[in-house]
Computed example of a mutant assay.
Amino acid sequence: MSWTRRAWLRSISVSALAVASRDLAAHLGTGPVDPLVAAPDVWVLDVNGQRRRLPELLRGKATAVQTMFTGCSSICPLQGAMFAAVQEGLASNGGRRTKRLLSLSIDPLGDTPKSMQQWLRQMNAGPSWAGVIPVDDARDLRSVLAGRPPDANLDRHSTQVYFFNAAAQLCWRSPSLPEPGDVVSVLDHLANT
């Protein structure tokens, strides 16, 4: 009986530590971006293999950006499911034309337009959800999104969502794995300002 109680207490302690660590990390680099940061002027490939400038892709709509890679089997499917729920929330509250979701690969060497297209299909992405792959190294791009220098710890996969206004300016960083309703709310706010 004491072993079961000890195992139970240990699992609660580990769970509490994980939640506390997640909550502490979630508050670093979150919230409004001041001053606003222009989208990095980098080339990306869309699912059709077309080269596009990221700022041109972001301009004109409030956009929520997540970083991911198609070969990920741990956190990326959860992020995809979260964006799928956001997509449903956007469809139910109307005004979808002024809002967009963008999955941005952090693996330009491993991901291809075809693998991105397949990943989006698995996530049931609709017309307001696109995916792109940086043409070059993604470290500088990730640095701008995270608001940290390129030599900072960018090896870990970020689960934040980065919000751009219609002028292609980064204006908000979410906590780790935000609630879909929170993403919808921020997009609604940005689309109406």
Score class of each variant (00 low, 15 high):
R97D: 14
L104F: 03
G110R: 06
G89I: 04
V135R: 04
T63Y: 11
W3Y: 10
Q160C: 09
K99T: 05
V65F: 01
V186W: 12
D155T: 13
L187V: 06
L36P: 15
Q169F: 08
E56R: 05
W8G: 13
Q169E: 14
P35Y: 03
L9Y: 11
G31S: 08
S74N: 12
R100Q: 15
D41Q: 08
C76R: 05
D34F: 15
A138M: 01
R173C: 01
C72N: 05
P149V: 02
G49H: 08
L154C: 08
R156T: 11
D137E: 14
A168Q: 05
G181Q: 14
A168N: 03
D137W: 08
A7W: 12
Q169K: 06
W119R: 15
T70V: 07
G147W: 01
C76M: 07
I133S: 02
S115L: 15
A91V: 08
R173L: 01
G181F: 08
L120V: 04
V19R: 13
C171D: 12
W8R: 15
R10I: 14
L145S: 00
V47C: 13
L190E: 02
R139S: 04
K99A: 06
F163V: 02
Q87W: 07
G147F: 01
R142E: 09
L57I: 04
L141I: 02
A20V: 06
V184A: 13
Q50A: 15
K99Q: 12
V44S: 04
S73V: 10
L28S: 09
N124G: 10
A62M: 11
S103A: 15
L58D: 01
K114W: 12
P108C: 09
A39H: 04
N48K: 15
D136W: 11
